[in-house]
């Protein structure tokens, strides 16, 4: 049962990613990205990474998608037709993407993994919190600083007016 749910959500995420590649309308592509991110959150729950799943939903589905949709709104002429983008370099994209996937899939399938007996892990979120505030506290604070600086810079950049193109 669990395995089949995992396969289903994996196929869903892959299909949504393909949709992002082929859908012409930018807003519909954003919705496909949202579906892909939610499928990945479901996969995280199925592999017992609940904290990461909640983070994925809150930050990606709640934060990044909203920012992206605001970006679409601000860069689309409201009176005109919906923003759509034709593709270019189709064969280059097919060659690079398909070739990379072929190589990676060959490596994944051919490698022998040493799989230890999976141990039941209780108190997972407690362990994660302790690790974040002891061993990784420096990186944690640094990530917070990076987030603060980049958000302030982004809002400053977005509101400052520059001379329109002559």
């Amino acid at each position: 049962m669990n395995e089949w749910a995992l396969y289903g959500f994996t196929l869903g995420a892959a299909a949504a990613a393909l949709g992002l590649l082929f859908i012409r309308d930018v807003f519909h592509a954003a919705l496909a990205l949202l579906a892909c991110l939610l499928c990945m959150a479901a996969i995280f729950i199925l592999v017992a990474a609940e904290f990461l799943a909640v983070t994925q939903i809150l930050i990606y589905a709640g934060g990044i998608i909203v920012v992206v949709i605001f970006g679409i709104m601000l860069t689309t002429r409201l009176a005109g037709k919906p923003e759509s983008a034709p593709s270019r370099n189709r064969w280059l994209a097919l060659a690079s993407g398909g070739g990379l996937f072929f190589l990676l899939a060959r490596i994944v399938v051919q490698t022998n993994y040493i799989q230890p007996a999976p141990a039941e892990n209780s108190g997972y979120i407690r362990q994660l919190g302790v690790l974040l505030f002891t061993q990784y506290s420096y990186a944690f604070e640094l990530a917070g600083l990076l987030l603060l600086v980049s958000l302030v810079a982004a809002s400053f950049r977005a509101i400052s007016k520059i001379r329109p193109h002559a």
Partner: peptide, 8 residues
Amino acid sequence: FLFSTGLA
């Protein structure tokens, strides 16, 4: 697959 699709 996700990485390759993103690259494409």
